[in-house]
Design a protein around this nucleic acid. Structure first.
Lengths: 115, 115
DNA sequence: GAAAAATGCAACTAAATGGTTGCATATAGA
DNA sequence: TCTATATGCAACCATTTAGTTGCATTTTTC
């Protein structure tokens, strides 16, 4: 592999690692799922039924936002949160590419096991 | 959603979040990639070319191991690390299901945006 | 305009994380 | 057996993370 390609891999990793990190927490994963299923909603609604406080949820939302996965907008006295389509698509594509990469690797790995 | 289904979701999340967390770090993501491309190898070889010490890599390998993503076996004076096929397949399937879930959500989200 | 609701902000704490260094142990090979 | 190599173990440190509580601010709504 050329140095250039190696660096391309590194910067891609650099870009996507935060997404994984953001999803690597049960509370956040649940937030994403809820926004997925329930559409845009406020912190208070997201917090309802959660085992942590609103402030905790708020911090998690900030993490998700910094990873580019969610976005928010003020509406009256509440703030509505929703998934960020672009980034989510991007992450999806990356997940798929990783998935394929693994698939190939698993094929090669079988040889090692059989050997 | 029934309580049962919610709990099923929760336990699935509980099972998969560590995988995301494990991949949510550049060093670990790189380790996985190297094991993917280079096949099973020792810590020393994994550490070569890395910017962190062997011990740091060792700790990262432990994290990956606890997430079930890698496995190791002693061979003579060295320990050979390799990707765990089963878990990786499992993670792959989960990534794909999440991916689909997002896809559907993105479709629904467009309605919100247009509305 | 006053009470209730929704959020924002700040300080603080406990625990986890990511990294290091130093030293001990085990194995390969000359 | 002696030396170099590969790993394991433990202590230690700085930073980040995940959570809390308390109080201030902004909007509704009656």
């Amino acid at each position: 592999m050329s140095r250039r390609n190696r660096n391309a891999g590194a910067s891609r990793r650099q870009a996507q690692a935060p997404v994984f990190a953001a999803l690597g927490d049960q509370v956040r994963l649940r937030i994403v799922t809820r926004l997925c299923d329930g559409g845009p909603m406020s912190i208070t609604r997201l917090t309802a039924g959660s085992r942590v406080t609103r402030q905790a949820v708020s911090k998690h939302l900030l993490v998700l936002q910094q990873a580019g996965l969610v976005r928010s907008a003020r509406r009256g006295r509440e703030r509505i949160w929703q998934l960020e389509q672009r980034r989510l698509q991007e992450a999806r594509r990356y997940l798929e590419s990783i998935s394929e990469q693994w698939d190939e690797a698993l094929g090669r790995l079988r040889k090692f096991v059989e050997a």
